[in-house]
Nucleic acid binder design. Structure first.
Lengths: 333, 333
DNA sequence: CAATCGCATGAAAGCGCTTACATCACGGAA
DNA sequence: TTCCGTGATGTAAGCGCTTTCATGCGATTG
């Protein structure tokens, strides 16, 4: 049916070994020979069989990425950057998502490894130790992103540091009655670190949250939870675990007739596109998603090549836009 | 190193053929035998070698999706839905993006096929006929999405009908001095159909656009182009080719001190999340991204199984929110 | 000038799985 | 009792490539 190495070898008048070398390590072949082979390849319209190649060489050139969801721009952008940073033609990206369900994440990881993934990109550190063991046994290299830690190779950032900087800003404005609108923290170390990081800083100052809501990712969920949080009239600031929740909160505020930031301060986390589209534009924590994707790709390649790569911690940064202000009481003073 | 079928067969006291049957077609094996085999598999921690399997069975269970970019929520959501609709465990999704560069798209398609993709999901119809021929020769089934047409199997919608409905709405409001803010149309039939569809409707009414801007996808690009379009003071409505451009336009309008929709009407296309976050919320054309992803997955599987699937045309719908109103002159009247 | 080395190439052995075909045991029909 | 059909299982032949090792040649060295 399709041309094989044998056909090419026959037409070019060389052995299959030489054909293979032309494709995988051209320098090990005399230019003249190479030319003949390449010509044969072209006239036969030959392209190597993937399965055979994978079987014989024990690598597929496929890298797997397992993310909670692509619906969150945070991951979509990160994956996009990651894919662009993969050396053209050498690797392809297998993507799977698990909708924040740990069981499904495990299945997806196993599925990608079963599909021959040479390496994996995973999100965060939180997962059953058995998974890490399994990966170790199978000798599948991996890089974790969107978080940081000592236990595993990562290219990420410090969620605690990010939220702490933001809460500090809110405190410095004079807010004392603060609530937090967090993503679901179960099995999600990013969300958990943001919530706990904020909580710890408050505790340090002898304060605590007026209220805390934990809701699934989503605009509408953010809006609803915000309304509930604001039932407590004392609250003057709502710190959100991510931009989508914050955008939802902002929309709810509009609908409730609350002025932002005059009546209430709302902050986000991630700095995705929507953060600069809301009105007013969202004060948030910028995360270098693009850079992170690139660094993760570089690190993973190191590991795949058997080198011992260095984890990378990227800085986050407060982006002060229009949704923060001193609490109403302070303005009265 | 790792357990192979032979190891499993030996431990279970059966032949490799039986092991293979247990994995691929369990019903053809006596329950008692199957149990023994499964046990052996578990104790050996066996998992089949992907390359060998692909080589012997001539299919990989990998499906490729080639999209312009994952940064556009439109594609991220579609891909997400597509992936979820793939039968769990049977298929995995290889994703590649090409940044709207036709040459790169071709490379990505070839790369995915070289990686053994059993089928492809592509965006739109516009591409070098040679690519379609190549795909036909290689017998790789594919489904096109985000558009419709007779030439190829698709699961998509009618971009012309969508924009026509929107322009009709704008015309009905009384606008006559309309400009269009379009995405780049080169090699992009979705953008082109939207622009040309709108143009054709205007022509039908004896009108034409006051101005047309074609810019690359992006918030900032939309904002800048909007400002230029509005240099023409007669313009009372700007129809945008997608929501991101519209959101950019809206932001520019705010900054220019224009009231929306009192001073100017702005419309979008796609109805992604940001459309309901802007202030005011964006009037746009809803596209059933999720449903489209699902239908595309179903259709592609039919084709992979050798059946002749039926293309699917999904409806679009105007979502009338807050960025449209009669032109100022009409209100004066 | 002989011994040695380096390099391009060829021969052939797998890589681990699927599957066509052969085999075997069993039960019912003749 | 004999024969044949049926279904479960075994045998073994590849699938198309990579890679190790062997080969042979010309060049380098003492």
């Amino acid at each position: 049916m399709h041309a094989t190495v044998d056909d090419v070898a026959a037409l070019a008048g060389v052995s299959t070994a030489t054909v293979s070398r032309c494709l995988n390590d051209p320098d090990r072949v005399l230019p003249a020979t190479r030319k003949k082979v390449m010509e044969a390849i072209r006239t036969l319209n030959y392209s190597p069989n993937f399965g055979a190649r994978a079987l014989a060489s024990r690598r597929t050139g496929i890298i797997g990425a397992v993310v909670p969801t692509l619906e969150n721009a945070v991951f979509a952008h990160g994956i996009d950057a990651f894919e662009h940073a993969l050396p053209e033609g050498k690797f392809a990206l297998l993507v799977a998502s698990y909708g924040y369900d740990p069981q499904r994440e495990r299945e997806q990881i196993e599925a990608l490894v079963a599909r021959g993934a040479d390496g994996l990109l995973l999100v965060g550190f939180d997962r059953d130790p058995a998974i890490y063991e399994w990966l170790a046994i199978r000798k599948v290299p991996y890089v974790l992103a969107w978080a940081c830690g000592d236990a595993h190779p990562y290219a990420g950032f410090d969620n605690v540091a990010g939220i702490v900087a933001m809460v500090r800003l809110v405190l410095d404005l004079g807010h004392r009655n603060i609530s937090m609108l967090s993503g679901l923290t179960a099995g999600n170390d990013r969300a958990r670190n943001r919530l706990e990081g904020a909580r710890a800083l408050l505790a340090e100052k002898g304060l605590s949250f007026r209220g805390v809501a934990e809701v699934p990712y989503g605009l509408e969920n953010g809006a609803k939870a915000f309304a509930e949080l604001m039932a407590d009239r004392a609250v003057t600031a709502v710190v959100c675990g991510n931009d989508v929740l914050a955008a939802g909160a902002l929309r709810a505020a509009h609908r409730m007739g609350l002025r932002v930031p005059e009546d209430v301060t709302i902050t986000g986390f991630d700095d995705i596109d929507i953060a600069s589209i809301t009105f007013p534009e969202l004060t948030t924590v910028r995360v270098p998603h693009k850079r992170m994707g690139q660094e993760a790709a570089a690190l993973l390649q190191q590991l795949i090549d058997g080198k011992s790569g260095q984890s990378i911690l990227l800085p986050t940064k407060i982006v002060a836009r229009g949704t923060h202000a001193p609490p109403p009481s302070c303005r009265n003073a």
